[in-house]
Write a protein that binds this DNA or RNA. Structure first.
Length: 288
DNA sequence: CTCCAGGGATGAT
DNA sequence: ATCATCCATGGA
């Protein structure tokens, strides 16, 4: 697959496979020794060997930014609280980075994510890309960009239903049309402070607090944003408030914001990935 | 078969 | 402000 020449990036404190499997992004496909995918409209091949990252020719800068290789990971992990749940998650997730995704494809994929397992989010993303996205050649492979707001906006709701979006089709279509019309500018929103950005995202169809926080964390580099999904809620209740009833969603949110600090989003991702990969399915639902 | 999934919108308290 | 209910679909 890597017949063409590749650029080399030195990437310490980074685990590519772990990062791409952590539920931030849903379209990278494992090839021979690496991964094939897209960043925006660009086709990218990337593989890792030890501390070196090999990426498609001319894409070193793009990949360095996308994979957030400039994040001071050691300092970030050192800022996490020293509780047992956090420490075991840190040990489990070494090299996991919060990446910088393009705004639209992150927003759109998380609109399609509600009440879906990761495997199915991947399937929806792949179907949308193959049917409506621009094909990009990557050596002998063809990868597909996420369809633009313009492309989605001109579709019919049935076109999206046919991609197994279910009740999410209406939301994705409505949000794509708001952006395509120019009524909403999600790139310009990057200049807003956290609270206002969250409010503006939540004003979009299909976007509530959880999806807004995911998009803030994975696309707008708001490392404090703390998405609370079913997994994280379980972790918080079981690990931080065992056997305690009457913890409202509001109380959990306030605790998370206070306890995990300025890189709370990173802490959340570590707790999420650790729980998701270590909780046995179909057996006793106890975290390690 | 049942249960669950990186939830959101809506209407009733 | 919180709570219950419904919303489609597929994997386990």
């Amino acid at each position: 697959m890597n017949a063409g020449k590749l650029d080399i990036i030195v990437a310490p404190d980074f685990d590519l496979a772990l990062t791409l499997d952590s539920g931030q992004t849903f379209h990278w496909e494992k090839t021979d020794a690496g991964f094939a995918g897209t960043i925006g409209a660009r086709a990218i091949y990337v593989k890792q060997r030890d501390d070196q990252l090999f990426v498609s020719k001319g894409r070193a800068e793009l990949c360095s930014k996308y994979f957030a290789l400039d994040h001071p990971l050691a300092d970030i992990c050192a800022s996490f609280p020293p509780d047992p749940a956090m420490q075991s998650a840190i040990a489990f997730c070494r090299g996991l980075r919060i990446i910088r995704q393009p705004h639209w494809e992150c927003l759109a994929t998380f609109i399609t994510s509600s009440m879906k397992q990761v495997a199915h989010i991947r399937q929806i993303s792949q179907t949308l890309r193959h049917r409506f996205g621009e094909p990009c050649s990557l050596c002998e492979l063809t990868v597909y960009a996420y369809p633009t707001p313009h492309r989605i906006a001109e579709l019919d709701e049935r076109d999206l239903q046919a991609c197994a979006l279910g009740y999410r089709a209406k939301s994705l279509l409505a949000t794509a049309r708001l952006i395509n019309s120019g009524e909403v500018d999600i790139d310009q929103m990057a200049a807003l402070p956290d609270d206002e950005l969250r409010a503006r995202l939540c004003a979009l169809p299909g976007v509530g607090a959880k999806v807004a926080n995911c998009v803030m964390l994975f696309a707008y580099e708001r490392l404090r944003a703390f998405p609370i999904d079913v997994w994280i809620e379980r972790v918080l209740r079981q690990q931080y408030f065992p056997g305690r009833r009457r913890m409202t969603a509001r109380q959990l949110r306030d605790f998370a914001a206070k306890h995990f600090g300025e890189h709370g989003g990173y802490a959340q991702q570590y707790l999420f990935h650790h729980a998701r990969k270590t909780t046995p399915r179909r057996l006793s639902p106890r975290a390690s």
